[in-house]
Amino acid sequence: MIPAPFDYVAAQSPEHALELLAEHGDDAKLLAGGHSLLPMMKLRLATPAVLIDIGRLSELAGITADDGELVIGATTRHADLAAAELARSQAPLLAHAAALVGDPQIRHRGTIGGSLSHADPAADLPMALLALGGRVELTGPDGVRTVSADDFFVGFFETVLRPQEMLTAVRVARKPGVPWGYQKFVRRANDWAIVGVAAVDGRVALANMGSRPLRATAAEQAMADGASAAEAAELAAEGTSPGEDIHADREYRAHLARVLTRRALEHQR
């Protein structure tokens, strides 16, 4: 299978990419690693007229740290994030999630910006960012705005990104030594999560329990109120609206969310 025809432009700089976005608007899609977009295009579920390649923009890749936050460039590849000492020490949950995306080949190509913009509710990185209470920098014609993960994901493969904006960086608070838990329930190692749970610092995020990555707010509240991990986990599926597919129905997903939340809370690293 092959994509429908499109025009291709390699952006020369982030500014150039923004200009191209402004020029082509809705007809254009940004291409970085292409591991969310190209599979959709091959199945012709996406048929953009123009691809703007930002994959070579070194300005957008790399991991740095300021006083309080880790800043990850949008085109940082999953394999690089997973291996980066800075990420492993300051945001180990994020590095761990990056190491679980797809398979090695996909991690060699896929980027954090691409994965977050794609906003697959079953994916690792959106859930991880939500658990970490991270933020994304969205750059548009009017400059940069910073949006929290809580506000960024709004629906099934849908974010608040505007057509003329691009995700340029990801920010998460540095939390060295803070315990975290991560549970990904899969049929095969390289599959998307049937249900996923990421927990850190009082926050619990769920993958594939709704049209977007969700927080288990009832469980979080219970923990804040002093409940045990087991007690809080019982509330993990409250307020979620999981879908049904060949792997799981709603009831099973809710059950998995409870079991995995308890494990994520009890088995922290």
């Binding site: 291709y8 390699a10 291409l31 292409g34 591991h35 190209l38 599979p39 091959k42 390649d53 994959g55 394999a79 090695p104 080949q105 996909i106 060699h108 190509r109």
Partner: peptide
């Protein structure tokens, strides 16, 4: 691709330039 494994069905030739 630049010494790391990739799935060449999901890389455009133009991306390998």
């Amino acid at each position: 691709l630049n010494d790391v494994s990739v799935k060449s069905c999901t890389v455009l030739a133009v991306q390998a330039a």
